[in-house]
């Protein structure tokens, strides 16, 4: 089942012509994420007012509960496939990793983090405040509202895919992240993920004691604290920069040794 990555014995000159990271894949995934976000927003525009006001109507079931079921089946499937791929294709010979390949993997990690941040922005900014614009207008009669079905069961599980994915990528392909767990990285991934369990408290509060929709009420402050943890991405980026500087130093030494041998 497991696949072992081997390090090809390319010459230093060949290596330098390779791209710094897998930019094409990152661009493709970013565009796919953007397309999905646009789809969700258009779906809301078309079906929120026409079929999303009364959760007991058949039209609500046909449009919104169908979307929810698709999200709850497809995104966890993506979790399993992506995370399993990253785990089973892990590098089992990290001690033999060449500096240039290590540098390339650091760039891939930064690109992974970019896609993660892209998803986080749509969830915590774009669709989160839009949730206010809906709930302060339409009185909720279910936890699965047109804004929640996209925000909590669409965009948030999607950023969990990339957050945990980037963590696994680093842990399975970069020696320093494999031997030492980065606490800022854990915070930057686990904090936003914990917004999902906090959703249970939010729905419980709205179902039992909070009828109106004031966004600043203490019921929502759990989300705030989880959002703060995104700041730990700063600590992670500093850590990655420090690691990359060290790799570049080794790369430089390797190149100098190669020049000396040729002479």
């Amino acid at each position: 089942m497991s696949i072992t990555i081997t390090h090809s014995a390319k010459s230093a000159a060949e290596d330098r012509t390779q791209p710094l990271g897998n930019f094409k894949l990152a661009a493709g995934v970013t565009l796919a994420v953007l397309a999905l976000m646009v789809f969700w927003r258009i779906f809301q525009q078309v079906y929120a007012w026409s079929a999303g006001l009364d959760s007991t109507e058949p039209a609500f079931d046909a449009a919104w509960m169908t979307l929810l079921k698709v999200e709850l089946s497809v995104i966890p499937l993506l979790w399993v496939v992506t995370w399993a791929y990253l785990w089973f294709t892990r590098d089992r010979n990290l001690g033999a990793l060449k500096p240039r390949e290590e540098l390339r993997r650091y760039f891939n990690l930064v690109l992974f983090n970019f896609v993660y941040a892209f998803c986080v922005w749509f969830a915590t900014s774009f669709f989160a405040e839009q949730d206010a614009s809906w709930h302060q207008v339409v009185v909720r009669d279910t936890s699965f509202t047109p804004s929640h079905i996209v925000l909590f069961y669409g965009t948030m599980p999607l950023y969990v895919l990339f957050g945990v994915g980037s963590f696994l990528y680093a842990m399975t392909r970069l020696p320093k992240f494999a031997t030492q767990i980065s606490i800022p990285f854990v915070l930057a991934v686990v904090g936003p993920f914990l917004i999902l369990p906090n959703l249970g408290y939010n729905e419980w509060g709205h179902a039992f004691f909070l009828m109106e929709e004031v966004f600043s009420y203490p019921l929502h402050w759990g989300f705030v604290v989880m959002g703060w943890s995104v700041l730990a991405l700063g600590g992670l980026l500093i850590q990655i920069a420090m690691h990359m500087l060290e790799v570049i130093g080794r790369l430089s030494q390797e190149d100098q040794a190669s020049v000396a041998t040729q002479r």
């Binding site: 031997t179 030492q180 767990i181 980065s182 606490i183 800022p184 915070l187 703060w228 943890s229 700041l231 730990a232 700063g234 600590g235 500093i238 850590q239 420090m242």
Partner: peptide, 8 residues
Amino acid sequence: LARVVTTP
């Protein structure tokens, strides 16, 4: 949050 802390 900007501290680089690691654990084995």
